[in-house]
């Protein structure tokens, strides 16, 4: 019987590949916390964008099981090779593709993916550090750490099936409340599954799913701008446990 998540001692490594760290652990903890829902969800196709060492996709495959098919991408060719070693060491399979986000998959996978997991490069950096080859691509997120996140969100929206879920790591500096609002405008509800304060970072793992009420409100917002302030209020009410977010909104 395999273990429930990937084991660190079995995770392969390479000097140019990001090793599992607090953000990876928080994302896997969120998947574990949502395990019962994931199993009931019975996904057919699962996708990780930016798999790094393979710690997260391996854990997802162990949690959900080989009833589903897994695909993982990374812009860093070293990372996809390391991820394959990590998967093999745990006796699970994911198809690996060296590509930028989901380039090459977007036409055929549109509307077909039931679960997407993303630990994006979220660290605020100068814009010209974004998207380079090698390990920097694992963290360099440009202005507010949003450069790659803002490219990923429309891709995820395109790929997710009607019942599709997205799990994404964000940092407080990324302004997660604004990300949730943007996704609400695309018809998604959202919930923070795990919050983690580490020595250096304040992380949130957010789950997004298509929601009928959000879709109606999204349509309403086009007709009536005042709705957006109501959306913000309802969104902030979800964040009553997170005073730092209220703070960041006051500054706007």
């Amino acid at each position: 019987m395999s273990s429930r998540i990937a084991q660190i001692r079995l995770v392969s490594s390479h000097p140019e590949v990001y090793e599992p760290c607090d953000d990876s652990f928080a994302l896997v903890d969120a998947l574990l916390a949502d395990r019962k829902n994931l199993l009931e969800h019975q996904p057919t196709l699962c996708l990780e964008l930016g798999c790094g060492s393979g710690y997260v996709i391996t854990s997802l495959a162990l949690i959900v099981g080989q009833e589903a098919h897994y695909i993982a991408t990374d812009i860093n060719p070293h990372a996809v090779r390391v991820a394959r070693e990590t998967l093999e060491a745990h006796g699970v399979h994911a198809e690996l593709i060296t590509t930028n986000i989901a380039s090459g998959l977007e036409k055929r996978l549109a509307g077909l993916v039931d679960v997407i997991v993303v630990n994006p490069p979220y660290v605020p950096t100068p814009e010209d550090e974004v998207g380079h080859e090698g390990i920097a691509s694992a963290w360099a997120g440009g202005e507010n750490g949003r450069s790659v996140i803002d490219k990923i969100l429309p891709v995820a929206d395109n790929l997710l099936s009607e019942k599709g879920w997205l799990y994404m790591v964000t940092l407080t500096e990324n302004n997660p409340s604004e990300i949730c609002l943007q996704m609400k405008e695309k018809g998604y509800a959202s919930r923070i599954i795990v919050q983690r304060l580490t020595e250096e970072e304040n992380l949130q793992i957010i789950k997004f799913w298509r929601d009928f009420d959000s879709q109606l409100e999204a349509k309403g917002m086009v007709a009536n701008k005042t709705v957006s302030s109501r959306v913000m209020e309802s969104l902030l009410s979800q964040f009553h446990i997170m005073p730092f977010l209220r703070g960041s909104n006051k500054q706007q």
Binding site: I75, P77, V80, R81, R84, L96, I97, T98, T99, N100, S103, G104
Partner: peptide, 13 residues
Amino acid sequence: RFPVSKGIPNMLL
């Protein structure tokens, strides 16, 4: 041509 090496396709442009 997009090369496939050790079973991994490289779609980088």
